Amino acid sequence: MDHVGPIERTVRNVLITLVLIFFMFPIVWIVLMSFQTNEQVLRIPPSPFFEPTLVNYTALITGKLRTAAGSLDIAFMSNLWNSVILSVSSVALSLVLGVPAAYAFARYKFRFSEDIAFTLLSFKFAPPLLVLLPLTLYFQAIGLANTYIGLIWVYQLITLPLILWIVRGYFEDISPDIEGAYRIAGHSWARTFRKIAIPLAMPGIAAAALLSFIFAWNNFVFALVLASADKQPVTVGALAFVTASGIQYGQIAAAIVLSITPTLALALFAQRYLVEGLSLGAVKG
């Protein structure tokens, strides 16, 4: 039963509203900017009242960016598609490799298991610049430079450690007795893993996959160095809006709105699994 008085309730609601305004204001302002021309964005003082226009979104979709110096070709939609290919493929490969590996680390204790797991996790925290030079030379030697396969391989440094360590914790929370009872019934290890372990750990797997997708989607350095313009994701392609005639703030705002839409849609779609997975992770142990 809620014993909070009317004054405390009012103060709490005011504080919650202030926090929401503080965090939501930049997002709302970006959305408003995306419907303004550069002149409207740069006017002083700024105003939330303006005549909306779709010229920024039209420029992104058609690939024709109009600046003071003339028309400029941009490949934003191609960059957006590259981000989808790289992020989805990287997470899918990491799930195929990381979920069985996480189960093995959770269920079987073998020599150097913790050292191997920690080494894999350390890849996530290593500075990207530390591995870029050797990776560039290595990829050039084996023909993987400027290829989707090469970038997806490198993205495993981002996605695989996250999935491995997050999912491992959920497998460790599943009682081995449940799997043992299923095995006694005559089922194989593979069927037990597929029918018992994975469904029980699904909230954690979904949460890890979503977080990995966000990290892969936001990656900048790897794609900047290892890919040319036709393979670069949207994070690198956004550099095209900084032109000799100035910075196209309206197009940048529209590009931000379009680029966060896939991750936002995925988060809403996986909201139930995400909340359940993070909640379970918060009370582990």
Rank of each mutant, 00 (worst) to 15 (best):
Q156R: 03
V99R: 03
T136F: 14
T136H: 14
L160G: 01
A106D: 06
P134R: 08
V154G: 02
I152G: 02
T136R: 15
A126G: 12
A106P: 02
A106Q: 03
V99H: 00
S90L: 05
P127V: 12
F125A: 10
G143R: 02
N79A: 05
L80Q: 00
F110A: 01
L95M: 07
A102F: 06
L120M: 15
L93Y: 07
L121N: 06
A145Y: 01
L157C: 03
A101N: 04
S113N: 12
Y108I: 07
F139L: 05
Y103E: 08
F118C: 15
A101D: 04
L151V: 08
F110W: 14
I158P: 07
L144R: 01
E114Y: 14
L133W: 13
A101Y: 06
L144Y: 05
L121W: 09
F76S: 03
L80C: 01
N146E: 03
L144W: 01
V88N: 13
I158Y: 02
V96D: 11
N79I: 01
I85Y: 07
W81L: 13
A106L: 03
L144F: 03
L144C: 00
F139A: 04
T147A: 07
A106T: 08
V84Y: 12
E114D: 14
A117V: 11
N82W: 02
L129R: 00
L121Y: 10
S78L: 08
A106V: 05
W81R: 11
F112Y: 15
Y108C: 09
